[in-house]
Write a protein that binds this DNA or RNA. Sequence first.
DNA 1: AAATTCTGTTTCCAATAGTGAATTCATCGA
DNA 2: TCGATGAATTCACTATTGGAAACAGAATTT
Lengths: 210, 210
Amino acid sequence: MPANTDQQAALRIASGRKPFVEPLRLGERLKEIRLANHWTLEDVSQRTGLARSTLSKIENNQISPTFTAVQKLINGLGIDLPQLLTPPRVQARTMGRRDLTRQGEGQHHPTPTYEHELLSCELAQKRMIPFKTIVRARSFDEFSEWVRHDGEEFLMVLTGEIQLYTEFYEPLQLAQGDSIYFDSDMGHALVSVSEEDAVVLSVCTRGDAA
Amino acid sequence: MPANTDQQAALRIASGRKPFVEPLRLGERLKEIRLANHWTLEDVSQRTGLARSTLSKIENNQISPTFTAVQKLINGLGIDLPQLLTPPRVQARTMGRRDLTRQGEGQHHPTPTYEHELLSCELAQKRMIPFKTIVRARSFDEFSEWVRHDGEEFLMVLTGEIQLYTEFYEPLQLAQGDSIYFDSDMGHALVSVSEEDAVVLSVCTRGDAA
DNA sequence: AAATTCTGTTTCCAATAGTGAATTCATCGA
DNA sequence: TCGATGAATTCACTATTGGAAACAGAATTT
């Protein structure tokens, strides 16, 4: 057995991949998706720009679509490629977890500048971290350094008005209902500028392995 | 058009996907991988069973490989498809991006049951998709099927009161300020139960390559 | 029931992907 | 400078895909 075959096998095993070419279930999968959405071949044709006939042939594994065709498919149907390759059903990630947090019932973490209330903290393995924050700080000086953490953050002002200081931009005034999305490894800090303490809702991405 | 198709479309738009077929950077990517492993076209040919000439043309974007060809490729090279599609390593971290959305200034996507307002849609590559939704539906019957999409979702009621139907649980009543986190591939649907249409803020994880 | 419409399949042909051989390109070494 | 040698590209040809139109079956309408 040639050396590179060994390596090939090693790589395959390492990547947890099946040793031979799959029978290309792509057709079945496409049909499944199509039917699940109550689409006709004509509908899909409209969306993707591929001819009805072509789609029929793909579904019946009579042709192997060109990669551009596959692209049109995933674009037009608004699905992701992994989704298209996912073995028909069965995959069943669907654990159907959920975690309810009633108003004010989160986990409170007071600090001099902020008062955080962690939401949905029953759930351990989640990809986002939502929390409500009462912004106590009234001046940027109250922060000894930038707040900074890996990932991205989304934030909406629920009540009051705040000033958002960021490392690379001019301060930004945000009123109730305004929202912002930013890379949270860029230094940032919030300050209330309204009469009362402002309240904001934040959601951070979890700093998992990229 | 079924309700869940709308949301699917909304998510597609939100995820910053370009509306047309990309110029297929697959060639560059393949070459990159090949060179990184010090493989010659002949080597890759051995491993994949594709002709040298074919590989050359793929690398130079002169042809769009058949899907079977792509399969041979990922099998022979022991790589994953997402890996092959990943844009050639550009995403340097800490870019300090940000995207402000003023109250009501998001991208509106009305549907019979929901009226979505996509927030922060200037930013293309982000890991979360935030949007505000006015819940029009008054009865569960208005949904032709479950709304369902990969990933996880966090949701907080901003105004009004809603009932959250989920595939595996009893319906749940959520008042202003209440929030919930759940696996969004579990079927779900929202219904207003207050006088006015309820408004909720949602954040979905991006269904990226698993 | 006949006609019409809608959906999926099949047929045929033009366009294009895949292949082996020939050609060009690049790097050595004498 | 001039072959060698190995690698990538191009060429000529075959096989396959993709699309328009014809076809067949089912569902609706008249």
